[in-house]
Design a protein around this nucleic acid. Sequence first.
DNA 1: CTGAAAGCGCTAACAA
DNA 2: TTGTTAGCGCTTTCAG
Lengths: 312, 312
Amino acid sequence: MLNGSELVKPAIRTRVEEAIKSLNYIPHDAARSLASRRTKTLGAILPTLNNAIFAEGINAFERTARDKGYTLVLSISNYDLDDERHLVRKMIERGVDGLLLIGNDHHPDSFEGLRQAGVQHVCAWTHVPDPPAANVGFSNAAAMVDLIDHLVAFGHRRIGMLAGLTAANDRARERVHGARKRLADHGLALPDERVMEIPYSVRAARQAFPKFAEHAVTALVCGNDVIAIGVLLEALKRGVCVPGDLSITGFDNLTLSGELQPAITTVEVLAETMGASAANLLINALEDHRPVESLQLPTRLVVRETTGPAPI
Amino acid sequence: MLNGSELVKPAIRTRVEEAIKSLNYIPHDAARSLASRRTKTLGAILPTLNNAIFAEGINAFERTARDKGYTLVLSISNYDLDDERHLVRKMIERGVDGLLLIGNDHHPDSFEGLRQAGVQHVCAWTHVPDPPAANVGFSNAAAMVDLIDHLVAFGHRRIGMLAGLTAANDRARERVHGARKRLADHGLALPDERVMEIPYSVRAARQAFPKFAEHAVTALVCGNDVIAIGVLLEALKRGVCVPGDLSITGFDNLTLSGELQPAITTVEVLAETMGASAANLLINALEDHRPVESLQLPTRLVVRETTGPAPI
DNA sequence: CTGAAAGCGCTAACAA
DNA sequence: TTGTTAGCGCTTTCAG
């Protein structure tokens, strides 16, 4: 009997497998989810897809998730925390097993809903000492240290910053804070009038550029590479010599930043690693039934051609 | 009694709604899907997210779908049709109500699986006379007509093409076909040795550029703007005058193409409209229980500064 | 118009 | 080990 069953089993298995193939059976995930109480789905809410750096990160997140049998549900918040709140709720209804958020700035309801529903989540693209949820990312503030030191070493004293919109964006805010703090360490100031906030767009950066002429800065720290590219292009167009008359720095190290001429000095961010790690940490936490671990990733100053000695 | 019930109803409704709020009730989509046999989910399989043009399209697709109550499930195929086949199957298991695919090049199993499962789908970014599924897009071949005419009008006779990889990419193939066909209309040839295929990357384009020196072309038609940007940057670096010594054209009209100096002559593609339309057509078909309609969108030649008279 | 009951197609717990 | 059964939380159908 035992032998019998062992002999029959493979035969039956084969027949079943044949049947599955020939009938072209496709399992029904909704039924499976309802019965097993897990969806094998990971959600991600990004502020935008227009920035190549997020595209790269989500790409890695999706690939990693897929390799482990998870599917990606994606939503875009357009940097609107109120909209994001609704998206978070939708994600919970959807029954995502885990959720990826960008940054630590979120509506209290978002965190509360996630907690109540018991949905694991991680906030990427940032890493701070006391995060409201697990952080997988880098310190946006600390990343400015080497950058500012580099500029100061070149003799820059009057530095301006063309930052991203900081209102609903802790990363942008941290970059300003980080720059200001490090300048203070050098006994230098970054007064409010020399900090301007604009959307992350080439066009906005070009338009904003002339405003800095009046401030006579010798170096312009940009909130990210998109802004830096806009500034560089506009400076070149106006005959401003870079870095002769003006030094420019970016943030993110987009592919293009290294290709332009002059190539842009910037901060490298490990977008791919962040995306992949976020997925891995989320999935590990899910499978082991424990909280998501935080992970701090390094940044690296990439010195290229848009920074040089301050003009006298 | 009738009156009574009508009086009681609102009261009850109010109480229920209160209960819903106070208990923080969240509906369970998997159960709903299982019972209603629809998931209110749209799938999308993109070849990549690295190209800003796809990011823009999927952005619009997601927003449109969300506005109509649908959620986006996203996968990336990395231009691999075999991988895509598995992703399609996953999408079917996931129970997506509708699916967005890019281009008409797909594994036969993909189409067959979709048909068998009765999953509505649409192929975007292309529009051909006899598509294997509904097409929401533009004619990649016809888009080259104005472009080639423009070049020929400038006196160009020896034209080369730096195309994308055509093997699993009907859009890239159509662009080559379209260019060659229109050149033939002018009595000009685009021989194979003057067509080179490379991945859509700035780096690859820069490396490929020198190969065209030997062919002494006066104009280089690029498969997309990413390639055109690479070619432009490399030409400038080598002291090649654009468009004095060489005319360059792109395809897609990325934001950046209009910002560089010289600004790139290219073909505008309505990525946002395509994404939004794909979602709308898919959803309309789903709700009205009829096949997905095709939609042809126009392209437009954007003449800028990288094209000019052929050198003598 | 309201309310009860029967599944949707799976998984998981349990019995044999 | 294998087979059976009871739900998972909704929608939908069918009485009332």
